[in-house]
């Protein structure tokens, strides 16, 4: 079922602790996280969403894009977006407003959707640069660059191409969405930094998979050491 070499020494523990860091190994924990994050982004776009400026509905899905990169890291965050968009292409109505199907990839907003993948990657790459602890500065920078600039860099040209309106006019027209994006960026930063305090094992990213770091991010380990205050109601002991 897996293409990985059978002789991989990674089987010392079921987690990834001994895998080589150089290549992107997707193990069962990653599959679960990527799939759950794709579903998380889908739920953020469900009807009955959030009215931010009075009654103007904005999609919270770009918030999900920012969080995917900030939490899962560059590669896994980008893969989560690929998975989400693949589900959309397969015909699940998961885009905000119940849209889906291959049609959205030929419409005016197609570029933004592709930009979500690159955006999540850039958010993750900046937020987790240098495998250090998260900082406010790097998180803000990552979310603004990856979560807004990169997405528009992909979205605007495609929109101009599809609608055949020149790029400057297209950009002008899209300015109305920028305030909403800034609000989401602020929320994404606050959530990421809150999560680092309240639920540190959320951040199981590519770069923390060194030999020594594994036990701290093992899922069973974290669950047992009680790092999840408040939200674990109803979960039996483990």
């Amino acid at each position: 079922m897996t293409s990985e070499p059978a002789a991989a020494p990674a089987e010392i523990t079921p987690r990834r602790s001994a895998r080589p860091v150089s290549r992107l190994a997707i193990d069962a924990t990653d599959i679960a996280r990527i799939a759950v994050f794709a579903a998380f982004i889908a739920v953020l776009g469900l009807p009955g969403g959030f009215a931010v400026f009075g009654s103007v509905p904005i999609t919270a899905q770009t918030l999900g894009v920012m969080l995917a990169g900030a939490i899962l890291g560059a590669w896994r965050g980008a893969i989560a977006l690929v998975v989400f968009l693949a589900l959309v292409a397969l015909g699940l109505p998961l885009l905000a407003g119940g849209h889906g199907g291959a049609g959205v990839f030929v419409g005016p907003t197609a570029g933004y959707l592709v930009g979500w993948i690159a955006g999540a990657f850039v958010v993750g790459a900046i937020v987790h640069a240098g495998r250090r602890r998260l900082t406010w500065a790097r998180t803000i920078l990552g979310v603004l660059v990856g979560g807004i600039l990169v997405i528009y860099a992909f979205g605007l040209p495609v929109q101009a191409l599809v609608t055949r309106i020149p790029l400057p006019e297209t950009a002008l027209q899209s300015l109305v969405f920028v305030p909403g994006d800034l609000v989401k960026a602020v929320i994404a930063v606050v959530i990421t930094m809150t999560l680092q305090r309240a639920y540190p094992r959320a951040f199981r990213t590519d770069r923390f998979v060194g030999a020594g770091g594994a036990s701290a991010v093992q899922s069973t380990a974290g669950a047992a050491s009680g790092t999840a205050p408040g939200v674990s109601s109803g979960t039996p002991e483990r």
Binding site: F37, V43, S219, V231
Partner: peptide
């Protein structure tokens, strides 16, 4: 809270 329950579900 939704993110946290989601991540727990993922685990």
């Amino acid at each position: 809270p939704f993110l946290v329950v989601s991540l727990k579900h993922a685990d």
